[in-house]
Design a binder for these strands. Sequence first.
DNA 1: GTGAAAGCGCTAACAT
DNA 2: ATGTTAGCGCTTTCAC
Lengths: 336, 336
Amino acid sequence: MTEQAPTLLDVAREAGVSAATASRALNGSTRTVSAEKLNLVLQAAARLGYAPNLSAQATARGSTKTVALIVHDIADPYFSSIAAGIVDGAEAAGLTVTMAVTGRSPDRELEIVSILRGHRPHAIVLAGSRIGDDQEALADELSAYRAAGGRVAVVSQPGLPYGTVTIDNRRGADELADALVAHGYRRFAILRGPDVLHTSRDRAEGFTAGLARAGLEPVETVEAEFTEDGGHAAMSGLLDRGRGEVELVFAVNDVMAIGAMRALRDAGLVPGRDLAIAGFDDIPAAVDVDPALTTVAVPMRKMGRRAIELALAETEEPELVRLPTSVVLRGSTPRR
Amino acid sequence: MTEQAPTLLDVAREAGVSAATASRALNGSTRTVSAEKLNLVLQAAARLGYAPNLSAQATARGSTKTVALIVHDIADPYFSSIAAGIVDGAEAAGLTVTMAVTGRSPDRELEIVSILRGHRPHAIVLAGSRIGDDQEALADELSAYRAAGGRVAVVSQPGLPYGTVTIDNRRGADELADALVAHGYRRFAILRGPDVLHTSRDRAEGFTAGLARAGLEPVETVEAEFTEDGGHAAMSGLLDRGRGEVELVFAVNDVMAIGAMRALRDAGLVPGRDLAIAGFDDIPAAVDVDPALTTVAVPMRKMGRRAIELALAETEEPELVRLPTSVVLRGSTPRR
DNA sequence: GTGAAAGCGCTAACAT
DNA sequence: ATGTTAGCGCTTTCAC
């Protein structure tokens, strides 16, 4: 049967007023319409089940009430926590969140930004570290959006000329190394992600720098995918080759660390006792594994919230917000 | 400085053609415009960094290329897995996903559906079991949307007159009970969620039914929040009161089960050895905990994909798809 | 194949 | 306070 959705004109007609009045009553600044007609319109709208056509509203006004969020993988707890913060913040500002997923493909990301731009969102938020340094095309796309009055915020990856909320990955990893050395560890392996990921690189380097201050260096470095399976595979490989003298494995994120713990157990070893493990992020699952995972706590949800604030703020200068991290020592790295 | 974003007219002018031709070249059915002008337009568009205004397109066409997704909590692995499937499916169909989060509040959910309806999405997908039976207002809102030609699909909760993809919660729990009895367990406690959640109720009842066939009944039933903290609190409570003769605790979802395991460890007990635990869903973390969690596998990602297909399918009759579950026995329920 | 013109549902001057 | 009238950027008849 599919009748059309009722339009503003239907409501106006039903209420016996002009479209303009109906518009003012329903969406405008309320104050300019008499209580009487206001009621008439409201009731007519309710009777008809009217919902304003946001697209039409957007074309007419030239702006939308949405913020577009770009993440790499929504099922990844790191991103979904950030997303949760963003949704919170957006909701507080009366904005709807639209979301797109890149699957970590730079091409796809570029395409997505282009499509999203078409939605003319109030703001675009990029979450998660970009891939590689070759971001010219992306930067162009974003600056076109920016030039047209759009707002951009970036979570996690500094270096883009927009409001950015991030953490100090180097420092966090450095402090972790410190704490671990203080716990008596001396022989470390690093499980890092693909080198093109800034996050991975910074954390690995920070950790190495921390060790260096104690006159140490990593016994071994293994590269793997930035996922749980990546961590599992890398740890399995390490064990196959013989882990030698390694006492502790630092994985550059918790997801990888948890994958590594699983590999350890699969090999009949006990994480923490036979080999210590540390991660980075403090995702919710970090306290669910046994032993609980030593890690660097990243305030993911707060980062999301802050990103929205940055995007919405009317500043000329791109602001860089660095949220503090903290080392959290847990059972996966017992004192030696 | 904020120049305006280039419009179709700008492109047309730049290419020396009419707006109509530009429109046809950029978005229409390609075939009706000469190769020559097509190129002209394409180049002009590229030069200007043109991105079509999707809102204007939507008002003109009367339809959008978006699907709206409503979830309770995006940080919950259950929902984010479903969301991932939906994003996959939508992407395959060339649709953008917009997302809103209810925080499990029925009022908020109603409000969201109303707002979303204003976006005139191609389809609305509701993910996660609804709260309570009092869904009249929600049903009204949805049927207004439906009447205007919108498509609706529901994940997880049967009972709404729309295409639905779900699992047989009763049966899954029933089979789990069977398997656990076969493993030698006799004394069970059930950790259930709020009774208003169908999912929780069905799983608890199915489990009880399974036990009944073996001439057993649950020793105890504890109600808690449907979250990890809820599971933790409930288990702590159970331990405080003395768990008596209970051999195995069945939590109606993995998140609660994992919370319960954590409570167990907090109390100095070893999950699996001192007290067996089983959950439901098979979220990714189920294999990360130690011992790995016995559970009922739910194909969450596939459910999301299937939901999009249902929503997009042109069927009159609301279809009900029940995806199969399977019992997965792991270390948290060793054979007795 | 291409352009002119009307219209999508709404908002925002501009009148009154 | 309310109605009239232009648009917003795009698509889509309808002629040529």
